Amino acid sequence: MAGTVQRPSSPAIAQIVDRILDTGQLSRWEYLQLVTTMLSDYKVTEEERSYINRVLDERQMGRLQWIS
């Protein structure tokens, strides 16, 4: 059975996104956390949605490197 991914808090999302964009590196765990948060739609603010979309856009354009 798959483990549960807990939704990060708003400051945690901002910190995760800032670190990802600063380093240009995205771990699969961070990706899973962000996508789960986005898809859960549980009290996701517009600011959080914007942060997450930024990372997903950067990944889609190939500007972020996968790390372990």
Rank of each mutant, 00 (worst) to 15 (best):
T36W: 12
K43S: 13
P8K: 01
S10C: 01
A14T: 11
D41N: 14
V5I: 13
S50L: 12
A12E: 12
S40F: 08
M1D: 14
A12C: 03
V17Y: 00
R28T: 05
G24I: 07
D22H: 07
T37G: 07
P11E: 04
T23L: 08
P11Q: 09
L56C: 09
R7P: 00
Y51D: 04
E46P: 14
E48D: 15
T23G: 06
A12H: 06
Y51R: 05
R54K: 10
D18S: 12
G3L: 15
S27W: 02
D18V: 01
V35G: 06
E58S: 11
Q33F: 03
R49Y: 11
W66P: 01
L64G: 01
R28G: 07
Q6C: 04
Y42W: 11
Y51E: 06
Y31N: 07
R54A: 06
R63E: 08
I16L: 06
S27L: 09
Q6A: 07
Q60T: 04
K43T: 14
L21V: 10
P11D: 10
S50R: 11
G24V: 11
V44E: 00
V44S: 01
M61E: 10
D57S: 12
P8W: 01
A12V: 09
N53D: 12
D18F: 09
W66V: 07
A14V: 14
T36R: 14
S40L: 11
A2H: 14
I52C: 04
M61V: 00
I13L: 07
E48P: 14
I20R: 03
Y42N: 11
Q25Y: 10
L56E: 10
L64I: 10
